[in-house]
Design a protein around this nucleic acid. Structure first.
Length: 495
DNA sequence: TAAGTAATAT
DNA sequence: AATATTACTT
């Protein structure tokens, strides 16, 4: 076949009309029985291998099952069970099939939509045989461009065989063959990796172990031990993570803030120590809770000298957590996209209560007493994080924060299920001897019994050089700890 | 060969 | 919006 004389070409053109695309495997979808039947007959008339389905859902099921292979899908636009656009979208996302849309009348808008959503052709009812005779072109042209893609791809990575990708991955050399003869099309595209919280956590833990500046994709991958991940997947994520770090590092806004860390899907609270011009982070939120307490509730430890110091994350001066179950105010800041609700608050001096934050959009919560719920929203450097600055007055013990509106009185414990109260009643414990070498240790709070964690950096262990230089100095947040101002003495905590 | 990066594509 | 790819560079 490959060697076809030039003079034959003319002949072939003539013949092609009714000869070549025989056996093209077409899946026809229409919930109108009659139309479907007509379509089927026409397709059969073209000698296509035709399968009919009367709704989009089953169509999708069949395609997903992959038991039968198809070259092309023809679907009616309007259907009961599923918008054909949905179907189109799913097919585009999951498989690699040309889709032809079908409608009656000339609904231009629908047509445009279909085309814009990636339909490769749009036919009007009634369909004529000669239109169907040409549809194989879509299949063919797609194959060609795919072949080109294959050739130009540097398949260097260890693309381990993934679900259903058999044909595609292994046969870089096979393109010619598959193009011309077998048509052994694989319907499944390699799925995108979804970075679930579990994956992110593993990723962070790996980095945590290796150290950010020694962490390379390969090592991370090994530690993560997730079979379907490739080095490239990790590389991409690492890239994103580093970009994220860049953006996260500065908070010009206030003494402290809470914000949604969209990278990790957790809340973080930040505080600033004016004396030293440094920032600390803690992370938390109900979104993630792993065995080593990554993402435990938000808390930073208390400052040693309360005078003029900043701290947040712990309760309230008198040891009494007030009931914050106060009137609902819709005025809290609601932030973009996710479930961000942020209550920025000022804390007056000697407060008995502080503020809280509600991470669940479904459970609107009251602004706490000392909150002014001026919905300050400040966009941070393009990322989806927004911050709510709040000022912490001097002479206060610490700041309390609750999530989800519940806390466990007297226990001081964080119950992940329902309570995200922070450090009830007691103060800090130490996260001892963490070199502030990496970002991660700082965000990695340990829940030590009843107390909250605190960033404790032993004197002399701060290594600000290496990391900042690597991240172009943008990583100050991570390389700088809360220093000796924050004790982390175990003595302070009681168990 | 692995890794970092920025721009761009899907 | 989140990942992937690409095209360079180190």
């Amino acid at each position: 076949m490959a060697a076809m004389g030039g003079d034959q070409r003319q002949m072939m053109e003539d013949a092609a009309e009714d000869k070549f695309p025989e056996g093209l495997r077409v899946l026809a979808v229409d919930d109108d029985r009659v139309c479907l039947k007509v379509l089927e007959n026409l397709l059969r008339g073209c000698k296509y291998h035709t399968t009919t389905v009367k709704d989009a859902t089953t169509a999708l099921k069949i395609l997903r099952a992959g038991k039968e292979k198809f070259d092309l899908v023809i679907t009616n636009v309007r259907m009961q069970d599923m918008d054909s656009l949905k179907l189109l979208e799913r097919i585009r996302l999951e498989m690699d099939l040309p889709v032809i849309m079908l409608s009656e009348g000339c609904e231009k808008k629908a047509m445009m939509k279909g085309i814009n959503h990636g339909a490769c052709d749009y036919l009007l009812k009634p369909v004529h045989t000669n239109e169907l005779k040409n549809i194989w072109q879509h299949v063919e042209s797609r194959r060609n461009s795919e072949a080109i893609r294959h050739i130009s791809r540097d398949d260097d990575d260890d693309q381990r065989s993934q679900l259903g990708t058999a044909t595609k991955n292994n046969d870089g050399a096979n393109t010619d063959e598959s193009k011309e003869s077998t048509h052994a099309s694989s319907t499944q595209k390699k799925p995108k990796v979804a970075w679930t919280i579990e994956l992110r956590t593993k990723f962070m833990e790996a980095i945590n172990q290796i150290g950010l500046y020694r962490a390379t994709p390969k090592k991370i991958l090994e530690l993560m031990n997730v079979d379907y991940l490739t080095r490239k997947n990790v590389l991409i994520h690492l890239q994103k993570y580093k970009l994220y770090l860049k953006k996260v590092n500065s908070n010009p806004l206030g003494d402290a803030c809470v914000r949604w860390n969209s990278f990790m899907n957790i809340w973080e609270s930040f505080m600033h120590n004016h004396e030293h011009e440094r920032w600390g982070v803690s992370s938390g939120g109900s979104a993630s809770w792993s065995p080593n307490h990554y993402g435990a509730a938000v808390h930073l430890g208390q400052h040693t000298s309360t005078e003029g110091s900043m701290s947040m994350g712990s309760l309230i001066s008198g040891g009494t957590m007030l009931g914050y179950l106060v009137p609902q105010t819709p005025t809290m800041g609601i932030f973009s996209g996710l479930n961000e609700h942020i209550v920025p608050f000022n804390i007056p001096s000697n407060p008995r209560s502080i503020g809280m934050l509600n991470a669940n959009i479904n459970v609107p919560m009251a602004a706490p007493q000392f909150v002014y719920s001026d919905p300050i929203t400040t966009v941070v450097a393009g990322f989806s994080e927004k911050m709510a600055p709040f000022n912490i007055a001097s002479k206060m013990g610490s700041v309390g924060m609750m999530l989800n509106g519940k806390y466990a009185p007297g226990t001081g414990r964080i119950s992940v299920a329902e309570t995200e109260m922070v450090n009830y009643g007691r103060t800090s414990s130490a996260l001892s001897n963490h070199q502030t070498y990496d970002f991660v240790p700082l965000t990695h709070m340990h829940d030590v019994g009843d107390a909250s964690g605190i960033f404790h950096v032993q004197e002399g262990t701060v290594d600000q050089q290496a990391p900042s230089s690597q991240l172009n100095g943008i990583n100050d947040l991570s390389s700088v700890g809360i220093n000796e101002d924050f004790i982390g003495e175990d003595a302070v905590m009681d168990g």
